[in-house]
Write a protein that binds this DNA or RNA. Structure first.
Lengths: 336, 336
DNA sequence: TTGTAAGCGTTATCAT
DNA sequence: ATGATAACGCTTACAA
């Protein structure tokens, strides 16, 4: 690929490169007339400013990096779309990287983006481990940073989260109201705040209704995880009356296994999902699920990042907690 | 952010910057001893090579850009994962951009990536329009380029596609075998080869069985599209006996509307989806769908790109056609 | 208003 | 085996 440069234009027009540069950056003095002449010639020659060169000299990129753990569920793509909408409006380009639920790959991704001088980073953790010290380092170096959904506990940074406590509480209470007692709790890795909050919600709902809590399992957020848990439960012949699943994918995986093994849902086992996917309303039985405002989450994260980008230096970390909704459907309601 | 540079190390160690550079690029002569010394110091100082500077001088980035039309369906994320797997092995970083089904945004994305000196591009079209001349230009400039899934018709470039003709044919024939006559055909925009091929398959299956073809509709690939089409059909009181939908999302959207309006599936209307999603087996009724090898598609695209990257200059465009499978489920089979 | 020139962090070509 | 130095394409003082 041959690129047309600022020099080519300068030569062609017998002006200095700095003049050409000025033509493209209105902040400098330049005679409107020459400016027009340059812009015209430039577009004739098919010139495009080289962002690489600009990054090098300006030490910034107008790029924002977004790192997500997985692509399997529609959750993260939706968040990305929300963030993109805001960032595009402010002339930032968005670079997306996915960590495949690996902490190591996540660090690699983050470093790649930092090396490429992104102006800021929006991150959802693949897990908690030796990635955190690196993020500490970034915040110390004043790299604008926003975590969302799967956020770290002890890092002073802006965060956008869902009110997991509240909705795990409500979802659990809903199951209790339906008369279910032995409720299995499933969530992601135990070191994610998200999991801790849900667990508290689950516990507190039991406490409120003076019911002993059921079994608790930590797993991933994929359908595979749901399948495996259900298979284990069946092979151990240890079937709970209801399940609060880590997310819809997990719930759907479980439903399939249970149905295949002849269990009736919700009669034999009731199931509630989390982070509602579009499929919740379409599977059989339709799935009760906690709906999260994914798009809004992306927008909020982008907003928080923009704030940091604007007031360089002074920045008070904020945490935005988003609200949700419990969509009650067939999988958790026994008609009597 | 303050970055440690090669200069800092050079100063610290009283060597030339070129020596430090050499230490990081084994291809040059350097005494193993000094090399060790430099590497050690560098890691102590937390040095990381600046890829921006390297891009500028080498005019390449070791980055590959992937552009996809949408994030809503799991199809593209899966393709990306396949491509990433291959590209990571060859030390390429993958930059993902999504065009939100907009041709303009797609061009913008492509230009951004080109400006950032990606070494190659993997693209699925959001549509056919004034993006094509730009891609022509890129191929003329020898930019390594691979199209997949939604590919342009008249551009000399490597492509990875699904055998849409064959599987649309089989899917249609399957419906015919089940005794359905009035089969509605739905696919994406008519200028996509993909749509043309499916349409030919659909037509030829009818021809083979000497049955007149049904109505044909072009739309998008989202659930919304399915919903709208179904609503239109109902309001026009023009209900086909069977549907070959654009994809699973579309099919699922239709199913919901039809079910809500009291139609029985497949008794009143049979439905077949395309590009199977994980949900096909979980919705009610379970959805018959043409399964495409998404992951393989990503891998194949990455392979084709790597070939171009390796034999710079000479490059014969290839088209890889991938095979699929028809997963027959409840939505298209009337038990008699 | 415009030109000159230094510099961003590398690599790569010359010397030495 | 190492050092000096000119690029890469741009921005931005500073000078004119």
């Amino acid at each position: 690929m041959k690129y047309v440069t600022i020099k080519d234009i300068a030569k062609e027009l017998n002006v200095a490169v700095s003049t050409v540069s000025r033509a493209f950056n209105d902040k400098y003095d330049i005679k409107p007339e020459t400016r027009e002449r340059i812009l015209k010639k430039a577009s004739e020659m098919g010139y495009r400013p080289n962002p690489i060169a600009r990054k090098l000299v300006q030490q910034r990129s107008y790029n924002i990096g977004i790192i997500i753990p997985e692509f399997e569920n529609s959750f993260f793509p939706q968040v990305i779309m929300g963030a993109q909408e805001i960032l595009y409006q402010h002339n930032y380009q968005v670079l997306i990287m996915q960590s495949n639920e690996s902490i190591d790959l996540e660090i690699r991704n983050a470093k790649t983006l930092v090396d490429n001088m992104v102006d800021g980073l929006i991150i959802s953790l693949s897990g908690v481990g030796n990635n955190l010290p690196y993020y500490e380092e970034l915040t110390e170096k004043k790299m604008p940073l926003v975590f969302f959904n799967r956020v770290p506990e002890n890092i002073e940074a802006s965060k956008v989260v869902f009110d997991d406590y509240k909705w795990a509480f409500f979802a659990t209470e809903h199951l209790i109201h339906q008369g279910f007692k032995d409720i299995l709790f499933i969530s992601g890795a135990d070191d994610l705040i998200l999991s801790k909050n849900r667990r508290r919600g689950y516990d507190d709902a039991h406490k409120k209704h003076r019911i002993p809590t059921g079994k608790k399992i930590n797993c991933g957020f994929s359908m595979k995880d749901g399948v495996q848990i259900a298979e284990n439960l069946i092979s151990q012949n240890n079937i709970p009356k209801a399940v609060l699943a880590a997310n819809d994918a997990c719930a759907i995986g479980m439903i399939r296994v249970f149905k295949d093994s002849g269990f009736k849902i919700p009669e034999d086992i009731a199931i509630v999902g989390f982070s509602e996917t579009k499929m919740a309303a379409h599977i059989s039985p339709t799935l009760t699920s906690v709906e999260q405002p994914t798009y809004e989450m992306g927008k909020a994260a982008a907003q928080l990042l923009l704030e940091q980008l604007q007031n360089k230096g002074i920045h008070i970390p904020q945490t935005i907690v988003l609200n949700g909704r419990l969509n009650v459907r067939e999988s958790s309601v026994v008609l009597s």
